[in-house]
């Protein structure tokens, strides 16, 4: 089997409210904390959906659209930068697994 990129893998995920531009986030990240006080920036490595990325100057960026609600960042961030708060399912993003 050929190697798959994370983009190809996430392309297989069934997201809620796909296509809606105004989906509400369920995770809020204060990237100032990541960039100013965090020495490990763990979320950029452990997130299995690559929602946390480092740019060319080493700054952390976050997007929730690809999030598969695994919860890893909730534990991996020990600096208080990550807050989970689900919106109403009608307007939230997140997953609906076909297999699970």
């Amino acid at each position: 089997m050929k190697k798959m990129s994370i983009a190809e893998r996430l392309g297989l995920v069934n997201y809620l409210n796909q296509g809606k531009t105004e989906a509400k986030p369920h995770i809020l990240v204060d990237t100032d904390i990541c960039n100013e006080t965090c020495d490990h920036k763990a979320t950029t490595r452990v997130c299995p959906a690559n929602c946390y990325t480092l740019d060319e100057v080493g700054k952390v960026h976050f997007q929730f659209e690809d999030c598969i609600e695994c919860g890893t960042c909730m534990f991996a961030c020990d600096k208080g930068a990550v807050t989970w708060e689900y919106p109403d399912p009608e307007v939230g993003r997140g997953v609906k697994w076909n297999f699970g």
Binding site: M1, K3, M4, I6, R9, L10, L12, V13, R45, V46, P48, A49, N50, I68, C70, G71, T72, V95, W97, N98, F99, G100
Partner: peptide, 30 residues
């Protein structure tokens, strides 16, 4: 990254033989 480790696991010669011909239909994590 976890998905890169998963790729390495799939590319292991013994695993490669076990999985060949399959089509990935969902990727998930928790």
């Amino acid at each position: 990254k976890p998905y890169d480790i998963l790729n390495e696991f799939k590319a292991h010669p013994i695993i490669h033989d076990t999985l060949k011909g399959g089509e990935v239909v969902e990727y998930s994590a928790h």
